[in-house]
């Protein structure tokens, strides 16, 4: 096995049982996927496309019905090693209110390390460090319910990194936040990836966030439909629209201009890149 493959999905299938109807609802179908150590992967898809289930399969909240998921070589079906897996892969959820357990910020961050049975001095050190990394150290004695959504989500992230995981899976962490909160969370996650080499799996349906990832995976009906770096993925405008997603306006505009015979770079990701291209063309002309 290659060392760089941190998470491996091998022909994974997963279905929920609909108790009322007595039928099986397929969510994940024959999914194979590897995530390298230190990567920043964004998983995109409309609601119900299986992206949340994929996230839950990464740290053994759910286990595949067929196929297998390996985390750093450990099979997630091995129940004896479940906490080893969760120590390696931390998870942040959508609603910040529903994942904070303590009434004081620093106590909440300490919750994970306490469960690991680490010495009090070491917990203290990790909690302080984690809070500094997410820039919430000044709020360590605050009550969580008095913080903004973005701040709460950063506390939740601190609670995960205090467990010193190798990978963080974030399941739509920005869906309930305002634009400022979204920026704060994205900045924090990017920093953790770049500075500390933590592998990130970021689930979202916001294109502007996916643009910042190293790799983008687009899912639809339990399958991967696109996989590549953001520039490649966003040029597939028709596929993205077919699966109910947006395309960055800059990218779409560049494509439209190309169709009308204007030779402009197709893989622009944001307005500033498009602006440079437009100005480049204008200057060539003069």
């Amino acid at each position: 096995m290659k060392m760089s493959n941190f998470i491996e999905f091998e022909n994974v299938c997963f279905a929920y049982r609909d108790e009322e109807e007595g039928t099986e609802v397929k969510v994940i179908e024959n999914l194979s996927l590897t995530v390298d150590k230190g990567d920043f992967v964004c998983v995109l898809g409309h609601n119900g496309c299986g992206k949340s289930t994929t996230a839950k399969l990464c740290n053994a909240i759910l286990v595949p019905q067929s196929g297998r998921v390996l985390v750093d070589g450990i099979d997630t079906r091995d129940e004896d090693k479940i906490n080893d897996i969760r120590k390696k892969v931390g998870m942040v959820f959508q609603n910040p209110d529903n994942q904070i357990v303590a009434t004081i910020v620093e106590d909440d961050v300490a919750f994970g390390p306490e469960n690991l049975g680490i010495s009090p001095e070491e917990i203290r050190r990790r909690v302080d460090e984690a809070l500094k990394q997410v820039e919430m150290y000044d709020f360590r004695l605050s009550e969580p319910h008095k913080l903004s959504g973005g701040q709460k989500q950063r506390v939740a992230i601190a609670g995960i990194i205090a467990m010193q995981p190798e990978c963080i899976v974030l399941d739509e962490p920005t869906a309930m936040l305002d634009p400022r909160g979204r920026r704060e969370v994205m900045k924090t996650v990017k920093m953790l990836n770049e500075k500390f080499g933590i592998t990130v799996i970021f689930i979202t349906h916001y294109m502007d966030e996916a643009v910042k990832a190293k790799r983008v995976i687009v899912m639809d009906e339990g399958k991967i439909v696109l996989d590549g770096n953001p520039r490649e993925v966003f040029t597939h405008i028709d596929t993205l629209k077919r699966v109910g997603l947006d395309v960055p306006e800059a990218t779409e505009l560049a494509m439209l201009l190309n169709k009308d015979g204007i030779k402009i770079e197709k893989d622009v990701l944001d307005i500033d890149e498009l602006l440079d291209c437009v100005i480049g063309l204008l200057e060539d002309k003069n």
Binding site: L253, L256, D260, V278, L282
Partner: peptide, 25 residues
């Protein structure tokens, strides 16, 4: 550049950019 700024839709943006880019040539 002499462009309008009240552009909110892709269609209008495309039309305006084309006017700017093709008009120049």
């Amino acid at each position: 550049y002499d462009v309008p700024v009240n552009v909110y839709t892709l269609d209008k943006a495309k039309a305006e950019l084309e006017k700017l880019l093709k008009g120049g040539s």
